[in-house]
Design a protein around this nucleic acid. Structure first.
Lengths: 337, 337
DNA sequence: TTGTAACAGTCAAAGGTTTTCCCTCCTTTT
DNA sequence: AAAAGGAGGGAAAACCTTTGACTGTTACAA
């Protein structure tokens, strides 16, 4: 039925060991033998069985990728980075969505280990103790992409969320705003609460501004969440004049809600977002945004994983990538100084 | 080192076959035996090796998914549909990007077959003869998701692109437009040239309008492509007053290019797009758009694949899903009649 | 009481590779 | 001319399960 290494060996009058050597590029084969074997492989259309190979070698050249939701551009972008580097190093990817649900994450982890992946790249906005423990017990390396494990026990790739947020909020402060809203995604996400929110508070304090809890709102990181946030923030006595938005969609929701009420951006209110997806250029005004290097986070994570897989030495297993702030039209020039 | 079925068998005083039965839910095991085995499994933290299992059973419970680009929302949405249904049927997904490059598609196909996937879901905007041939020779079932193989030899899931386009263009005609532009993605894509473009031409002809080749332009399906298209179309003597755009990004590009030149949508020009991603609601005016059910295309494709994998009977292997046109603000009401 | 069927379980082959160990020739070296 | 060393390749174990053939036991109908 299917042609095996054994068939090739027989046809080529060599042992299966030799065929294996040829297939795997082992040097211990005479060129003439190699040629002969290669010809038979061609003729028989032999295709090595990766499953058998995996069983024998204990390597599957497959890595697991667990992400919250591939249909969300943020994760999709990172996934592409992961896959590109994986391909470059001849790995395939088993991709699964966790919906940021701990039980799914746990069971996915288990499934993938059962499938004998050589390593795992994990994206999770909330690394719970249980999850962390599972990952630490993993027999194969795991790297966290764009995800925070505060204990720093696991390798990870991130940007300095605190610094980035601080800088963004500061732009707004520099532009003279006193009432700056903080609109973020769910506060169950580590990055939102431990980094962005903290940085926001620190920036205000450093500028001698009060932190008004009513200016802090959390919604789903969606367009509608942004609209919702704007409404909420505009029924308080003293609405904000500037917004820090945790994502592009949030920012666009805020802007459109405002515009629909005759408020002009950036003339009347200013908005800065955190993401800089391609959406940022596709709305008017175009979004000033902290550029999150999603693709790079994915790519570097995968590269880091390959280092572990190849037993290369890794200097620092918690990588911090640079970010920049893309200045466009939702924040006035002034701050450029 | 790693605990195997053999260790469990020894500890539980049964044969590995019995352990295997317990693990696989085979009924031929006495409840007391089952319990005993389960306890040992628990205690030893035994985790079945899916690779060995795959070798022995010749089933991997893994399916391959080949798509042009996961970072593109269109495919990501479909991928999510695929993955959800795959999960529901306990399959995992090996995901790979082809960049719509025939060589990559071919080699990906080969790699996945080598990995012994049980089936494949393929998305390709240009099913070449060579690719088709490879897929036909596949030892495992392959279904085409949102992709056209004109020979209909392979199972597939699509919508009626022709009808949808015809209807969309007709809305524009109904609104009194005589000069309607057709702006699409690459003409190397089957759907664009054989369905959308043909439908556009037919709609015009049926309305007694001439087809003006200078109103037909193909660009990358991106925002910038849309901007480009608008520019191109507005340096001809008699620019169009309405646009059929092959994707949301294209539509948005066209709209913004126009707006940046003081042209109002839908007062001065009207635009209808083909996709209805979440972007459609995130721009002003909101996009009137043919709603492409991407998630469903993915989900139904995967479901179809499971039917083949379970040897269920399939009535029609070329599924056509319904579509609708989402009426919003980039086309005037009139056509609603 | 016997025969039979269902049930529980065992044994061992099979699945397709990789890999370790070993052997046989040749070449070199001395 | 003998010893040493290396290149090329073979044999077979190992990887961990599933699965089909088979055996022994039990329960029940006849």
């Amino acid at each position: 039925m299917t042609v095996t290494i054994y068939d090739v060996a027989r046809e080529a009058n060599v042992s299966m060991a030799t065929v294996s050597r040829v297939v795997n590029g082992n040097q211990n084969v005479k060129p003439s033998t190699r040629k002969k074997v290669l010809e038979v492989i061609e003729r028989l259309e032999y295709r090595p069985n990766a499953v058998a190979r995996g069983l024998a070698s204990k390597k599957t050249t497959t890595v697991g990728v667990i992400i919250p939701d591939i249909s969300n551009n943020i994760y999709a972008e990172a996934a592409r980075g992961i896959e590109d580097i994986a391909t470059m190093y001849r790995y395939n990817i088993i991709l699964a969505n966790s919906d940021q649900n701990e039980d799914k994450e746990l069971s996915l982890l288990d499934t993938m280990l059962g499938k004998q992946v050589d390593g795992i790249v994990m994206m999770s906005d909330a690394v719970t103790p249980k999850l962390l423990q599972s990952m630490e017990n993993s027999p194969v390396p795991i790297v966290l992409a764009g995800s925070i494990d505060e204990s720093q026990k696991l390798p990870s790739v991130n940007i300095d969320y605190f610094q980035a947020t601080y800088e963004a909020v500061n732009m707004l402060i520099t532009n003279g705003h006193k009432r700056i809203a903080f609109v973020s995604g769910p506060l169950s996400y580590t990055i939102n609460v431990k980094y962005k929110l903290e940085a926001y508070k620190k920036a205000l304090k450093d500028a001698g501004l009060d932190v008004d809890e009513s200016l802090i709102v959390a919604e789903d990181s969606t367009y509608d969440g942004g609209v919702e946030a704007w409404k909420e923030l505009n029924q308080i006595e003293n609405p904000p004049t500037a917004y820090f938005a945790g994502s592009d969609e949030l920012a666009i929701g805020i802007i459109h809600a405002a515009q629909d009420h005759g408020i002009k951006v950036p003339e009347d209110i200013e908005v800065i977002s955190f993401e800089n997806s391609k959406l940022a250029r596709m709305v008017r005004p175009q979004l000033t945004s902290v550029a999150l290097p999603l693709y790079e986070i994915g790519a570097v994570s995968m590269r880091l994983l390959t280092k572990f897989l190849n037993k290369e030495k890794v200097e620092d297993q918690n990588v911090i990538l640079p970010y920049r702030i893309e200045k466009r039209d939702s924040v006035k020039e002034k701050s450029k100084k």
